[in-house]
């Protein structure tokens, strides 16, 4: 099997006295769709925050290997922007767009770490800067079109419908040119039709850009039908992992979701 693009080894995260993540291991390979599920408060978002640099893990290793060469880089303790630069981009559970900026500008921000023009270029507006700027605009527009938001290009993101905002977050994350896209509850608040469209979009993105995708999601139908592998987190511990079928039949998972029986 090829080398993993993301390899998380024995990560712990403590908040004060509370252990939010306890010895978590996880791997993601190229072009894989991996789902991370678990009951509310299991530590899923904390896990995302730990691997994207928003929190520093208390202990353990987060290793990324964008080209799957077998020569990974350790990213824990790195700042979020460095992690994004390495190629992991994320969306947020409680949408964090730039509310007063237009959809296009939001996506353009995503290209920031892949472009270079600085103060000198901005003031002189030299040829390199102009070209870069136009390329950014064109690419951002294409991404918007890809996620089906071309009619909202010049709409401020705060004025967009909720489901569209989630899509805009995906487009913005894609603009950073990731090898791994991390989606935090992308279907939250969507109706079944929207969820279905979103599922198609995610699979399409994986095929089109050849990237790996990891998502946190509560919609089991969606998770089961699209994921290659599923990890289950409960009380900060990884209690199961495997193909959708394996996970669905795992007694520990059923227990975590349905609660413990009385005689236990």
């Amino acid at each position: 099997m090829s080398n993993p693009v993301l390899n998380v080894k024995a990560v712990d995260k403590d908040f004060g006295g509370i252990r939010a993540l306890d010895d978590v291991d996880l791997v993601v390979h190229q072009k894989e769709i991996v789902a991370l599920i678990g009951p509310n408060g299991a530590g899923k978002t904390t896990f995302f925050n730990c691997i994207t640099g928003i929190y520093a893990p208390t202990s353990g290793d987060v290793l990324v290997d964008p080209k799957a060469t077998g020569d990974p880089v350790r990213v824990n303790g790195k700042k979020p922007n460095k992690v994004t630069e390495l190629g992991m981009a994320r969306t947020f559970q409680n949408i964090r767009l730039f509310p007063s900026m237009t959809a296009l500008e939001n996506v353009m921000i995503g290209t920031h770490c892949r472009t270079k023009s600085a103060v000198f270029g901005a003031i002189t507006r030299c040829k390199a800067t102009r070209n870069e700027e136009q390329a950014v605009i064109d690419r951002s527009y294409e991404l918007l079109k890809l996620v089906g938001l071309d009619q909202y290009v010049n709409e401020t993101s705060a004025n967009m419908p909720y489901g569209k905002q989630r899509r805009l977050e995906i487009a913005r994350a894609l603009a950073t040119d990731p090898f791994l896209l991390l989606l935090d509850e992308p279907a939250a608040g969507m109706n079944p039709q929207e969820t279905h469209d979103l599922e198609k979009l995610i699979v399409d993105l994986r095929d089109r850009f050849d990237i790996a995708i990891m998502l946190i999601e509560h919609d089991m139908k969606m998770v089961m039908s699209m994921s290659d592998r599923i990890y289950v987190l409960d009380y900060g511990r990884m209690i199961a992992d495997g193909t959708p079928r394996e996970v669905a039949e795992n007694p520990a998972v059923i227990k975590a979701y349905l609660g413990e029986s009385d005689d236990d």
Binding site: N81, T84, F98, E105, I109, A175
Partner: peptide, 18 residues
């Protein structure tokens, strides 16, 4: 643009590589 974005949401900004 980066300044503007930073003014609106610092965390999202950092997560976008700024």
């Amino acid at each position: 643009r980066a300044w503007l974005a930073l003014r609106e949401d610092e965390i999202a900004c950092q997560a976008m590589g700024i």
